[in-house]
Design a protein around this nucleic acid. Structure first.
Lengths: 286, 286
DNA sequence: GTTCCGCATGAATCGATAG
DNA sequence: ACTATCGATTCATGCGGAA
Protein backbone atom coordinates (compact mmCIF):
# COMPACT_ATOMS: atom_id res chain seq x y z
CA UNK A 1 0.00 0.00 0.00
CA UNK A 2 1.44 3.29 -1.13
CA UNK A 3 1.30 6.17 1.28
CA UNK A 4 1.10 9.68 -0.02
CA UNK A 5 2.28 11.83 2.83
CA UNK A 6 2.99 15.47 3.11
CA UNK A 7 6.73 15.65 3.26
CA UNK A 8 9.16 18.51 3.08
CA UNK A 9 10.05 18.90 -0.54
CA UNK A 10 8.25 18.08 -3.74
CA UNK A 11 7.44 14.49 -4.62
CA UNK A 12 6.99 13.13 -8.13
CA UNK A 13 6.88 9.41 -8.75
CA UNK A 14 6.64 7.51 -11.97
CA UNK A 15 5.58 3.88 -11.80
CA UNK A 16 6.05 1.32 -14.58
CA UNK A 17 3.38 -1.16 -15.56
CA UNK A 18 -0.39 -1.63 -15.58
CA UNK A 19 -2.21 1.28 -13.96
CA UNK A 20 -4.92 -0.98 -12.54
CA UNK A 21 -2.31 -2.95 -10.57
CA UNK A 22 -0.75 0.17 -9.13
CA UNK A 23 -4.05 1.87 -8.39
CA UNK A 24 -5.06 -0.99 -6.11
CA UNK A 25 -2.11 -0.10 -3.91
CA UNK A 26 -3.32 3.46 -3.42
CA UNK A 27 -5.20 4.41 -0.28
CA UNK A 28 -8.80 5.56 -0.47
CA UNK A 29 -9.36 9.29 -0.87
CA UNK A 30 -5.72 10.18 -1.24
CA UNK A 31 -5.65 12.08 -4.54
CA UNK A 32 -6.82 15.65 -5.15
CA UNK A 33 -6.84 15.57 -8.93
CA UNK A 34 -6.71 12.90 -11.57
CA UNK A 35 -5.91 14.36 -14.96
CA UNK A 36 -5.11 12.08 -17.85
CA UNK A 37 -5.28 11.48 -21.53
CA UNK A 38 -5.65 7.74 -21.95
CA UNK A 39 -4.59 5.92 -25.09
CA UNK A 40 -7.16 6.71 -27.72
CA UNK A 41 -9.15 3.95 -29.27
CA UNK A 42 -7.16 2.34 -32.01
CA UNK A 43 -7.84 -0.47 -34.36
CA UNK A 44 -4.35 -1.84 -33.89
CA UNK A 45 -4.49 -2.93 -30.27
CA UNK A 46 -0.78 -3.57 -30.11
CA UNK A 47 0.59 -0.19 -31.09
CA UNK A 48 0.40 1.88 -27.94
CA UNK A 49 -1.74 -0.22 -25.69
CA UNK A 50 -4.63 1.06 -27.75
CA UNK A 51 -8.05 -0.47 -27.44
CA UNK A 52 -10.74 -1.09 -29.98
CA UNK A 53 -13.61 1.38 -29.95
CA UNK A 54 -16.17 -1.32 -29.30
CA UNK A 55 -14.32 -2.51 -26.23
CA UNK A 56 -13.24 0.87 -24.94
CA UNK A 57 -15.94 1.36 -22.31
CA UNK A 58 -15.52 -2.15 -20.98
CA UNK A 59 -11.77 -1.62 -20.73
CA UNK A 60 -11.96 1.76 -19.04
CA UNK A 61 -14.70 1.24 -16.46
CA UNK A 62 -12.65 -0.83 -13.97
CA UNK A 63 -10.01 1.88 -14.07
CA UNK A 64 -12.63 4.55 -13.53
CA UNK A 65 -13.85 2.60 -10.49
CA UNK A 66 -10.38 2.61 -8.95
CA UNK A 67 -9.91 6.29 -9.70
CA UNK A 68 -13.18 6.94 -7.91
CA UNK A 69 -11.89 5.13 -4.87
CA UNK A 70 -8.53 6.86 -4.63
CA UNK A 71 -9.94 10.33 -5.29
CA UNK A 72 -10.73 12.56 -2.34
CA UNK A 73 -14.42 13.48 -1.92
CA UNK A 74 -13.66 17.06 -2.94
CA UNK A 75 -11.31 15.99 -5.71
CA UNK A 76 -11.78 16.12 -9.48
CA UNK A 77 -11.18 13.76 -12.41
CA UNK A 78 -10.40 15.36 -15.76
CA UNK A 79 -10.49 13.05 -18.76
CA UNK A 80 -9.04 14.35 -22.02
CA UNK A 81 -10.31 12.27 -24.89
CA UNK A 82 -11.76 12.34 -28.40
CA UNK A 83 -13.73 9.73 -30.26
CA UNK A 84 -12.56 8.34 -33.57
CA UNK A 85 -14.43 8.60 -36.81
CA UNK A 86 -15.18 5.11 -38.07
CA UNK A 87 -17.39 4.02 -40.92
CA UNK A 88 -18.16 7.64 -41.73
CA UNK A 89 -19.56 8.25 -38.24
CA UNK A 90 -18.29 9.55 -34.97
CA UNK A 91 -18.08 6.61 -32.63
CA UNK A 92 -20.24 6.65 -29.52
CA UNK A 93 -17.96 5.00 -26.99
CA UNK A 94 -17.21 8.23 -25.18
CA UNK A 95 -20.79 9.29 -24.62
CA UNK A 96 -21.56 5.74 -23.58
CA UNK A 97 -18.69 5.97 -21.13
CA UNK A 98 -20.17 9.11 -19.61
CA UNK A 99 -23.50 7.37 -19.06
CA UNK A 100 -21.83 4.31 -17.53
CA UNK A 101 -19.64 6.35 -15.22
CA UNK A 102 -22.68 8.19 -13.93
CA UNK A 103 -24.32 4.87 -13.15
CA UNK A 104 -21.31 4.06 -11.02
CA UNK A 105 -21.47 7.23 -8.97
CA UNK A 106 -19.49 9.80 -10.90
CA UNK A 107 -21.01 13.22 -11.40
CA UNK A 108 -20.51 14.61 -14.90
CA UNK A 109 -19.90 18.17 -13.81
CA UNK A 110 -18.70 19.83 -17.00
CA UNK A 111 -17.30 19.35 -20.46
CA UNK A 112 -14.45 21.66 -21.37
CA UNK A 113 -13.45 22.03 -24.99
CA UNK A 114 -9.79 22.00 -25.91
CA UNK A 115 -9.57 23.86 -29.20
CA UNK A 116 -6.46 22.70 -31.05
CA UNK A 117 -5.31 25.50 -33.26
CA UNK A 118 -2.90 23.29 -35.16
CA UNK A 119 -4.82 20.13 -35.75
CA UNK A 120 -3.85 17.26 -37.98
CA UNK A 121 -4.14 18.06 -41.68
CA UNK A 122 -6.03 16.08 -44.24
CA UNK A 123 -8.98 16.26 -46.57
CA UNK A 124 -11.95 13.99 -46.88
CA UNK A 125 -15.13 14.19 -48.88
CA UNK A 126 -17.36 14.03 -45.81
CA UNK A 127 -15.68 15.93 -43.01
CA UNK A 128 -13.27 18.67 -42.04
CA UNK A 129 -10.20 18.50 -39.88
CA UNK A 130 -10.88 17.70 -36.25
CA UNK A 131 -9.76 20.68 -34.21
CA UNK A 132 -11.15 19.94 -30.75
CA UNK A 133 -11.06 17.40 -27.97
CA UNK A 134 -13.20 16.82 -24.91
CA UNK A 135 -11.95 17.47 -21.38
CA UNK A 136 -14.62 15.78 -19.31
CA UNK A 137 -14.82 16.84 -15.69
CA UNK A 138 -16.10 14.29 -13.20
CA UNK A 139 -16.57 14.65 -9.46
CA UNK A 140 -17.63 12.56 -6.51
CA UNK A 141 -19.55 15.33 -4.77
CA UNK A 142 -21.42 18.44 -5.81
CA UNK A 143 -19.06 20.47 -3.69
CA UNK A 144 -15.47 20.15 -4.82
CA UNK A 145 -12.28 22.16 -4.59
CA UNK A 146 -12.00 24.80 -7.29
CA UNK A 147 -9.64 27.76 -7.24
CA UNK A 148 -10.98 29.90 -10.03
CA UNK A 149 -8.72 32.84 -9.33
CA UNK A 150 -5.67 30.75 -10.22
CA UNK A 151 -6.58 30.65 -13.91
CA UNK A 152 -7.85 34.18 -14.43
CA UNK A 153 -6.65 35.81 -17.59
CA UNK A 154 -5.85 39.43 -18.29
CA UNK A 155 -8.37 41.15 -20.50
CA UNK A 156 -7.44 44.71 -21.24
CA UNK A 157 -9.29 47.04 -23.53
CA UNK A 158 -6.90 46.25 -26.32
CA UNK A 159 -7.77 42.59 -26.05
CA UNK A 160 -11.48 43.24 -26.09
CA UNK A 161 -11.10 45.27 -29.21
CA UNK A 162 -8.89 42.77 -30.93
CA UNK A 163 -11.11 39.86 -30.13
CA UNK A 164 -13.88 41.43 -32.12
CA UNK A 165 -11.94 41.95 -35.30
CA UNK A 166 -8.91 39.76 -35.46
CA UNK A 167 -8.60 36.17 -36.43
CA UNK A 168 -8.27 33.50 -33.85
CA UNK A 169 -4.57 33.23 -34.54
CA UNK A 170 -3.53 36.17 -32.45
CA UNK A 171 -5.78 35.27 -29.57
CA UNK A 172 -4.35 31.79 -29.44
CA UNK A 173 -0.85 33.09 -29.54
CA UNK A 174 -1.50 35.48 -26.66
CA UNK A 175 -3.27 32.82 -24.68
CA UNK A 176 -0.62 30.17 -25.08
CA UNK A 177 2.02 32.67 -24.18
CA UNK A 178 0.25 33.40 -20.94
CA UNK A 179 -0.33 29.81 -19.98
CA UNK A 180 3.03 28.42 -20.94
CA UNK A 181 4.71 29.74 -17.86
CA UNK A 182 7.87 30.65 -19.67
CA UNK A 183 7.00 33.80 -21.54
CA UNK A 184 5.09 34.98 -18.53
CA UNK A 185 6.09 38.45 -17.49
CA UNK A 186 4.00 39.70 -14.63
CA UNK A 187 4.96 43.29 -15.19
CA UNK A 188 3.22 43.14 -18.54
CA UNK A 189 -0.05 42.49 -16.78
CA UNK A 190 0.05 45.47 -14.46
CA UNK A 191 -2.93 47.64 -15.10
CA UNK A 192 -4.78 44.97 -17.01
CA UNK A 193 -8.16 43.77 -15.97
CA UNK A 194 -8.48 40.11 -15.00
CA UNK A 195 -11.47 38.02 -15.91
CA UNK A 196 -12.47 34.41 -15.41
CA UNK A 197 -11.94 32.16 -18.40
CA UNK A 198 -14.66 30.17 -20.11
CA UNK A 199 -14.99 26.43 -20.65
CA UNK A 200 -13.18 26.69 -24.01
CA UNK A 201 -9.40 26.35 -23.90
CA UNK A 202 -7.23 27.58 -26.74
CA UNK A 203 -3.98 25.70 -26.80
CA UNK A 204 -1.74 24.65 -29.62
CA UNK A 205 -0.88 21.00 -29.52
CA UNK A 206 2.79 20.57 -28.88
CA UNK A 207 4.88 19.92 -31.91
CA UNK A 208 7.67 17.40 -31.88
CA UNK A 209 10.36 19.69 -30.62
CA UNK A 210 12.77 17.53 -28.68
CA UNK A 211 12.16 14.24 -30.39
CA UNK A 212 9.66 13.10 -27.81
CA UNK A 213 6.20 13.32 -29.23
CA UNK A 214 4.21 14.57 -26.29
CA UNK A 215 0.75 14.58 -27.74
CA UNK A 216 -0.72 16.63 -24.94
CA UNK A 217 0.68 20.04 -24.32
CA UNK A 218 1.90 20.73 -20.81
CA UNK A 219 -0.39 23.73 -20.63
CA UNK A 220 -3.45 21.50 -20.61
CA UNK A 221 -2.75 19.56 -17.37
CA UNK A 222 -1.16 22.71 -15.94
CA UNK A 223 -4.40 24.61 -16.37
CA UNK A 224 -6.47 22.00 -14.58
CA UNK A 225 -3.82 21.56 -11.87
CA UNK A 226 -3.98 25.27 -11.11
CA UNK A 227 -7.76 25.21 -11.18
CA UNK A 228 -8.39 22.16 -9.00
CA UNK A 229 -5.39 21.91 -6.63
CA UNK A 230 -3.18 23.92 -4.33
CA UNK A 231 0.50 23.55 -3.57
CA UNK A 232 1.28 20.32 -1.79
CA UNK A 233 -1.78 18.54 -3.18
CA UNK A 234 -1.51 15.23 -4.99
CA UNK A 235 -2.00 14.86 -8.75
CA UNK A 236 -2.35 11.48 -10.45
CA UNK A 237 -2.05 10.53 -14.10
CA UNK A 238 -2.63 6.81 -14.70
CA UNK A 239 -1.52 7.15 -18.34
CA UNK A 240 1.34 9.57 -17.94
CA UNK A 241 3.08 8.83 -21.24
CA UNK A 242 6.25 10.86 -21.41
CA UNK A 243 5.55 12.38 -18.01
CA UNK A 244 3.91 15.62 -19.08
CA UNK A 245 1.38 15.73 -16.24
CA UNK A 246 4.03 15.12 -13.58
CA UNK A 247 6.31 17.74 -15.05
CA UNK A 248 3.48 20.25 -14.98
CA UNK A 249 2.72 19.30 -11.38
CA UNK A 250 6.35 19.69 -10.34
CA UNK A 251 6.60 23.08 -11.97
CA UNK A 252 3.50 24.14 -10.07
CA UNK A 253 4.66 22.79 -6.73
CA UNK A 254 2.21 19.90 -6.56
CA UNK A 255 3.09 16.33 -5.67
CA UNK A 256 2.35 13.81 -8.38
CA UNK A 257 2.23 10.18 -9.36
CA UNK A 258 2.34 8.98 -12.94
CA UNK A 259 1.87 5.45 -14.23
CA UNK A 260 3.03 4.27 -17.62
CA UNK A 261 2.70 0.85 -19.16
CA UNK A 262 5.08 1.13 -22.06
CA UNK A 263 8.71 0.93 -21.04
CA UNK A 264 9.89 3.32 -23.70
CA UNK A 265 7.61 6.07 -22.41
CA UNK A 266 8.28 5.13 -18.80
CA UNK A 267 12.00 5.74 -19.27
CA UNK A 268 11.23 9.01 -20.99
CA UNK A 269 8.91 10.06 -18.18
CA UNK A 270 11.56 9.23 -15.58
CA UNK A 271 14.07 11.43 -17.34
CA UNK A 272 11.64 14.31 -17.83
CA UNK A 273 10.45 14.27 -14.24
CA UNK A 274 14.04 14.10 -12.98
CA UNK A 275 14.85 17.12 -15.07
CA UNK A 276 11.83 19.01 -13.77
CA UNK A 277 12.72 18.25 -10.16
CA UNK A 278 16.24 19.54 -10.71
CA UNK A 279 14.92 22.98 -11.58
CA UNK A 280 13.38 24.75 -8.58
CA UNK A 281 9.76 25.72 -8.99
CA UNK A 282 9.28 29.26 -10.17
CA UNK A 283 7.44 31.27 -7.52
CA UNK A 284 5.53 33.14 -10.18
CA UNK A 285 3.83 29.96 -11.25
CA UNK A 286 2.60 28.81 -7.87
CA UNK B 1 -49.64 17.60 -48.69
CA UNK B 2 -47.20 20.39 -49.31
CA UNK B 3 -45.30 20.37 -52.54
CA UNK B 4 -41.88 21.91 -52.71
CA UNK B 5 -41.31 22.61 -56.35
CA UNK B 6 -38.59 24.39 -58.20
CA UNK B 7 -40.20 27.59 -59.27
CA UNK B 8 -38.86 30.72 -60.79
CA UNK B 9 -37.93 32.97 -57.91
CA UNK B 10 -37.01 32.32 -54.33
CA UNK B 11 -39.49 30.73 -51.97
CA UNK B 12 -39.55 31.21 -48.22
CA UNK B 13 -42.52 30.05 -46.19
CA UNK B 14 -43.22 30.41 -42.52
CA UNK B 15 -45.87 28.18 -40.99
CA UNK B 16 -47.57 28.74 -37.63
CA UNK B 17 -48.22 25.94 -35.17
CA UNK B 18 -46.90 22.58 -34.10
CA UNK B 19 -44.02 21.40 -36.23
CA UNK B 20 -45.08 17.76 -35.98
CA UNK B 21 -48.43 18.58 -37.56
CA UNK B 22 -46.86 20.46 -40.43
CA UNK B 23 -44.08 17.93 -40.98
CA UNK B 24 -46.64 15.22 -41.66
CA UNK B 25 -47.78 17.22 -44.66
CA UNK B 26 -44.33 17.22 -46.23
CA UNK B 27 -43.45 14.75 -48.92
CA UNK B 28 -40.78 12.12 -48.37
CA UNK B 29 -37.23 13.07 -49.33
CA UNK B 30 -38.05 16.64 -50.21
CA UNK B 31 -35.62 18.60 -48.04
CA UNK B 32 -31.89 19.06 -48.60
CA UNK B 33 -30.97 20.45 -45.21
CA UNK B 34 -32.64 20.66 -41.84
CA UNK B 35 -30.89 23.12 -39.57
CA UNK B 36 -32.45 24.15 -36.30
CA UNK B 37 -31.95 25.20 -32.74
CA UNK B 38 -34.87 23.72 -30.84
CA UNK B 39 -36.21 25.13 -27.60
CA UNK B 40 -33.74 24.26 -24.90
CA UNK B 41 -34.70 22.06 -22.04
CA UNK B 42 -36.16 24.10 -19.24
CA UNK B 43 -37.38 23.22 -15.81
CA UNK B 44 -40.39 25.43 -16.30
CA UNK B 45 -42.00 23.49 -19.07
CA UNK B 46 -44.35 26.24 -20.08
CA UNK B 47 -42.00 29.15 -20.48
CA UNK B 48 -40.70 29.07 -24.03
CA UNK B 49 -42.39 25.95 -25.17
CA UNK B 50 -39.47 24.39 -23.38
CA UNK B 51 -39.43 20.82 -22.23
CA UNK B 52 -38.15 19.26 -19.06
CA UNK B 53 -34.72 17.68 -19.38
CA UNK B 54 -35.99 14.28 -18.32
CA UNK B 55 -38.63 14.30 -21.05
CA UNK B 56 -36.55 15.93 -23.74
CA UNK B 57 -35.57 12.78 -25.62
CA UNK B 58 -39.09 11.42 -25.54
CA UNK B 59 -40.41 14.73 -26.85
CA UNK B 60 -37.87 15.09 -29.63
CA UNK B 61 -37.73 11.58 -31.08
CA UNK B 62 -41.04 11.68 -32.96
CA UNK B 63 -39.93 14.93 -34.54
CA UNK B 64 -36.58 13.39 -35.46
CA UNK B 65 -38.46 10.55 -37.13
CA UNK B 66 -40.43 12.95 -39.29
CA UNK B 67 -37.31 14.90 -40.18
CA UNK B 68 -35.73 11.64 -41.26
CA UNK B 69 -38.63 10.96 -43.55
CA UNK B 70 -38.73 14.37 -45.23
CA UNK B 71 -34.97 14.60 -45.67
CA UNK B 72 -33.46 13.56 -48.99
CA UNK B 73 -31.11 10.56 -48.82
CA UNK B 74 -28.13 12.81 -49.51
CA UNK B 75 -29.40 15.53 -47.18
CA UNK B 76 -28.13 16.60 -43.77
CA UNK B 77 -29.67 17.41 -40.41
CA UNK B 78 -27.80 19.91 -38.23
CA UNK B 79 -28.96 20.17 -34.64
CA UNK B 80 -27.67 23.10 -32.62
CA UNK B 81 -28.12 22.37 -28.96
CA UNK B 82 -26.48 22.52 -25.54
CA UNK B 83 -27.38 20.66 -22.40
CA UNK B 84 -28.33 22.50 -19.26
CA UNK B 85 -26.47 22.20 -16.02
CA UNK B 86 -28.86 20.88 -13.40
CA UNK B 87 -28.06 19.79 -9.88
CA UNK B 88 -24.42 20.68 -10.39
CA UNK B 89 -24.14 18.32 -13.36
CA UNK B 90 -24.37 18.54 -17.08
CA UNK B 91 -27.55 16.80 -18.07
CA UNK B 92 -27.30 13.75 -20.29
CA UNK B 93 -30.37 14.16 -22.45
CA UNK B 94 -28.39 15.19 -25.49
CA UNK B 95 -26.00 12.28 -25.52
CA UNK B 96 -28.94 9.99 -24.87
CA UNK B 97 -30.68 11.58 -27.83
CA UNK B 98 -27.70 10.84 -30.05
CA UNK B 99 -27.78 7.18 -29.07
CA UNK B 100 -31.55 6.95 -29.62
CA UNK B 101 -31.41 8.65 -33.00
CA UNK B 102 -28.75 6.22 -34.13
CA UNK B 103 -31.03 3.34 -33.15
CA UNK B 104 -33.66 4.82 -35.44
CA UNK B 105 -31.40 5.00 -38.48
CA UNK B 106 -29.64 8.34 -38.21
CA UNK B 107 -25.89 8.39 -38.74
CA UNK B 108 -24.04 10.63 -36.30
CA UNK B 109 -21.57 11.98 -38.80
CA UNK B 110 -19.88 14.76 -36.89
CA UNK B 111 -20.06 17.12 -33.97
CA UNK B 112 -19.14 20.70 -34.77
CA UNK B 113 -18.33 23.09 -31.96
CA UNK B 114 -19.79 26.55 -32.05
CA UNK B 115 -17.44 28.64 -29.98
CA UNK B 116 -19.37 31.67 -28.78
CA UNK B 117 -16.86 34.43 -28.48
CA UNK B 118 -19.04 36.71 -26.42
CA UNK B 119 -20.97 34.33 -24.27
CA UNK B 120 -23.36 35.31 -21.55
CA UNK B 121 -21.57 36.73 -18.53
CA UNK B 122 -21.91 35.16 -15.14
CA UNK B 123 -20.03 33.47 -12.37
CA UNK B 124 -20.69 30.36 -10.36
CA UNK B 125 -18.69 28.71 -7.63
CA UNK B 126 -18.39 25.43 -9.50
CA UNK B 127 -18.15 26.30 -13.18
CA UNK B 128 -17.07 28.90 -15.68
CA UNK B 129 -19.07 30.64 -18.34
CA UNK B 130 -20.37 28.30 -21.01
CA UNK B 131 -18.81 29.45 -24.27
CA UNK B 132 -19.70 26.64 -26.66
CA UNK B 133 -22.61 24.71 -28.10
CA UNK B 134 -22.89 21.50 -30.03
CA UNK B 135 -23.84 21.42 -33.71
CA UNK B 136 -24.62 17.77 -34.25
CA UNK B 137 -24.53 16.58 -37.84
CA UNK B 138 -26.78 13.66 -38.73
CA UNK B 139 -27.20 11.95 -42.08
CA UNK B 140 -29.25 9.21 -43.65
CA UNK B 141 -26.46 7.86 -45.80
CA UNK B 142 -22.69 7.74 -45.65
CA UNK B 143 -22.58 9.64 -48.91
CA UNK B 144 -24.19 13.03 -48.65
CA UNK B 145 -24.01 16.37 -50.38
CA UNK B 146 -21.18 18.55 -49.08
CA UNK B 147 -19.77 21.58 -50.85
CA UNK B 148 -16.61 22.21 -48.90
CA UNK B 149 -15.25 24.87 -51.23
CA UNK B 150 -18.14 27.15 -50.30
CA UNK B 151 -16.81 27.72 -46.80
CA UNK B 152 -13.08 27.92 -47.37
CA UNK B 153 -11.22 30.51 -45.35
CA UNK B 154 -7.99 32.45 -45.87
CA UNK B 155 -4.92 30.55 -44.79
CA UNK B 156 -3.75 30.89 -41.20
CA UNK B 157 -0.63 32.81 -42.10
CA UNK B 158 -2.61 35.22 -44.12
CA UNK B 159 -4.10 37.32 -41.33
CA UNK B 160 -0.87 37.48 -39.43
CA UNK B 161 1.13 38.56 -42.45
CA UNK B 162 -1.29 40.99 -43.93
CA UNK B 163 -2.30 42.64 -40.70
CA UNK B 164 1.11 44.24 -40.56
CA UNK B 165 0.38 45.84 -43.88
CA UNK B 166 -1.61 48.96 -43.19
CA UNK B 167 -2.91 49.18 -46.72
CA UNK B 168 -4.89 46.02 -46.13
CA UNK B 169 -6.82 47.43 -43.20
CA UNK B 170 -9.98 47.98 -45.16
CA UNK B 171 -10.18 44.41 -46.28
CA UNK B 172 -9.83 43.23 -42.71
CA UNK B 173 -12.66 45.40 -41.61
CA UNK B 174 -14.86 44.06 -44.38
CA UNK B 175 -13.97 40.58 -43.32
CA UNK B 176 -15.22 40.91 -39.79
CA UNK B 177 -18.31 42.72 -40.86
CA UNK B 178 -19.48 40.29 -43.49
CA UNK B 179 -18.94 36.86 -42.11
CA UNK B 180 -17.36 36.87 -38.68
CA UNK B 181 -14.61 34.76 -40.11
CA UNK B 182 -16.54 32.55 -42.45
CA UNK B 183 -17.86 32.83 -45.96
CA UNK B 184 -16.82 36.31 -46.84
CA UNK B 185 -16.87 38.12 -50.11
CA UNK B 186 -14.68 35.86 -52.13
CA UNK B 187 -13.83 38.46 -54.71
CA UNK B 188 -11.74 40.29 -52.13
CA UNK B 189 -9.48 37.33 -51.65
CA UNK B 190 -8.65 36.53 -55.24
CA UNK B 191 -5.06 35.46 -55.47
CA UNK B 192 -4.83 34.59 -51.79
CA UNK B 193 -4.49 31.11 -50.52
CA UNK B 194 -7.52 29.40 -49.05
CA UNK B 195 -7.77 26.42 -46.81
CA UNK B 196 -10.62 24.29 -45.60
CA UNK B 197 -12.00 25.17 -42.17
CA UNK B 198 -12.08 22.83 -39.18
CA UNK B 199 -15.00 21.55 -37.17
CA UNK B 200 -14.72 24.47 -34.74
CA UNK B 201 -16.74 27.56 -35.67
CA UNK B 202 -15.90 30.93 -34.20
CA UNK B 203 -18.98 33.09 -34.20
CA UNK B 204 -20.16 35.76 -31.86
CA UNK B 205 -23.58 35.08 -30.40
CA UNK B 206 -26.05 37.65 -31.47
CA UNK B 207 -26.36 40.67 -29.24
CA UNK B 208 -29.51 42.50 -30.25
CA UNK B 209 -31.76 39.50 -30.49
CA UNK B 210 -34.93 41.24 -31.59
CA UNK B 211 -37.11 39.79 -28.86
CA UNK B 212 -36.23 36.18 -29.42
CA UNK B 213 -34.80 34.43 -26.41
CA UNK B 214 -32.59 32.01 -28.27
CA UNK B 215 -29.67 33.96 -29.63
CA UNK B 216 -28.76 32.17 -32.82
CA UNK B 217 -26.63 34.27 -35.10
CA UNK B 218 -27.50 34.23 -38.77
CA UNK B 219 -23.93 33.22 -39.59
CA UNK B 220 -24.46 29.83 -38.00
CA UNK B 221 -27.25 28.52 -40.27
CA UNK B 222 -25.66 30.42 -43.15
CA UNK B 223 -22.44 28.46 -42.76
CA UNK B 224 -24.22 25.11 -42.83
CA UNK B 225 -26.49 26.21 -45.66
CA UNK B 226 -23.46 27.04 -47.77
CA UNK B 227 -21.77 23.81 -46.79
CA UNK B 228 -24.63 21.40 -47.38
CA UNK B 229 -26.82 22.98 -50.08
CA UNK B 230 -26.71 24.69 -53.43
CA UNK B 231 -28.85 27.45 -54.82
CA UNK B 232 -32.43 26.36 -55.31
CA UNK B 233 -32.21 23.63 -52.67
CA UNK B 234 -34.69 23.42 -49.82
CA UNK B 235 -33.84 24.28 -46.23
CA UNK B 236 -36.13 23.47 -43.31
CA UNK B 237 -36.15 24.79 -39.76
CA UNK B 238 -38.91 23.23 -37.63
CA UNK B 239 -38.20 25.67 -34.79
CA UNK B 240 -37.52 28.80 -36.77
CA UNK B 241 -38.09 31.28 -33.96
CA UNK B 242 -37.76 34.78 -35.35
CA UNK B 243 -37.00 33.42 -38.81
CA UNK B 244 -33.22 33.54 -38.75
CA UNK B 245 -32.72 30.33 -40.72
CA UNK B 246 -35.12 31.39 -43.45
CA UNK B 247 -33.55 34.81 -43.71
CA UNK B 248 -30.13 33.21 -44.10
CA UNK B 249 -31.52 30.87 -46.73
CA UNK B 250 -33.10 33.73 -48.66
CA UNK B 251 -29.90 35.73 -48.61
CA UNK B 252 -28.07 32.71 -49.98
CA UNK B 253 -30.60 31.98 -52.69
CA UNK B 254 -32.01 28.82 -51.14
CA UNK B 255 -35.68 28.00 -50.74
CA UNK B 256 -36.80 27.52 -47.18
CA UNK B 257 -39.60 26.55 -44.85
CA UNK B 258 -39.76 27.58 -41.23
CA UNK B 259 -42.21 26.45 -38.59
CA UNK B 260 -42.90 28.31 -35.37
CA UNK B 261 -45.30 27.44 -32.60
CA UNK B 262 -45.40 30.68 -30.71
CA UNK B 263 -47.48 33.32 -32.38
CA UNK B 264 -45.28 36.16 -31.23
CA UNK B 265 -42.25 34.68 -32.93
CA UNK B 266 -44.25 33.57 -35.92
CA UNK B 267 -45.29 37.16 -36.59
CA UNK B 268 -41.71 38.27 -36.14
CA UNK B 269 -40.49 35.58 -38.53
CA UNK B 270 -43.04 36.59 -41.12
CA UNK B 271 -41.86 40.17 -41.00
CA UNK B 272 -38.18 39.27 -41.11
CA UNK B 273 -38.61 36.88 -44.01
CA UNK B 274 -40.70 39.43 -45.90
CA UNK B 275 -37.95 41.95 -45.43
CA UNK B 276 -35.29 39.52 -46.62
CA UNK B 277 -37.28 38.66 -49.74
CA UNK B 278 -37.59 42.33 -50.58
CA UNK B 279 -33.83 42.70 -50.85
CA UNK B 280 -32.40 40.88 -53.85
CA UNK B 281 -29.83 38.23 -53.01
CA UNK B 282 -26.28 39.48 -53.16
CA UNK B 283 -24.41 37.60 -55.87
CA UNK B 284 -21.25 37.64 -53.78
CA UNK B 285 -22.91 35.50 -51.14
CA UNK B 286 -24.20 32.75 -53.37
C1' DG C 1 21.79 39.17 -34.52
C1' DT C 2 17.55 39.38 -37.43
C1' DT C 3 14.29 37.97 -40.99
C1' DC C 4 12.80 34.87 -44.29
C1' DC C 5 12.11 30.74 -46.77
C1' DG C 6 12.05 25.79 -47.30
C1' DC C 7 11.08 21.48 -45.19
C1' DA C 8 9.80 17.72 -42.15
C1' DT C 9 6.27 16.31 -39.19
C1' DG C 10 2.21 15.09 -36.74
C1' DA C 11 -3.57 11.45 -30.88
C1' DA C 12 -6.32 11.87 -38.64
C1' DT C 13 -9.45 9.71 -42.05
C1' DC C 14 -10.95 7.66 -46.29
C1' DG C 15 -10.81 4.42 -49.95
C1' DA C 16 -8.67 0.76 -52.11
C1' DT C 17 -6.29 -3.49 -51.87
C1' DA C 18 -5.11 -7.85 -50.04
C1' DG C 19 -5.73 -11.77 -47.01
C1' DA D 1 -18.51 -10.21 -45.75
C1' DC D 2 -15.10 -8.71 -42.61
C1' DT D 3 -10.58 -7.22 -41.05
C1' DA D 4 -5.81 -5.46 -41.53
C1' DT D 5 -2.63 -2.62 -44.04
C1' DC D 6 -1.15 1.19 -47.20
C1' DG D 7 -1.22 5.38 -49.97
C1' DA D 8 -3.08 10.00 -50.62
C1' DT D 9 -4.60 14.04 -48.80
C1' DT D 10 -3.63 18.46 -45.97
C1' DC D 11 -1.78 22.68 -43.03
C1' DA D 12 0.10 24.96 -38.57
C1' DT D 13 4.40 24.91 -36.47
C1' DG D 14 9.23 24.97 -35.36
C1' DC D 15 13.45 23.99 -37.01
C1' DG D 16 17.84 24.99 -39.73
C1' DG D 17 20.25 27.31 -43.16
C1' DA D 18 20.77 31.35 -46.03
C1' DA D 19 20.63 36.28 -47.12
Amino acid sequence: MYELKEQPGLQAKVLPGECLEHLKEFQDSSINLVVTSPPYADQRASTYGGHRPDEYVEWFLPIADELYRVLKPTGTFVLNIKEKATGGERHTYIIELILEMRKRGWLWTEEFIWHKKNCYPGKWPNRFRDAWERCLQFNKEKKFDMYQEAVMVPMGDWAKTRLKNLSETDKVRDNSKVGSGFGKNVSNWVGKEFVYPTNVLHLASECGNKGHSAAYPKELPAWFIKLFTREGDWVLDPFVGSGTTCVAAVELGRNSVGIELKDEYYQLALANVEEALRVPAQPSLL
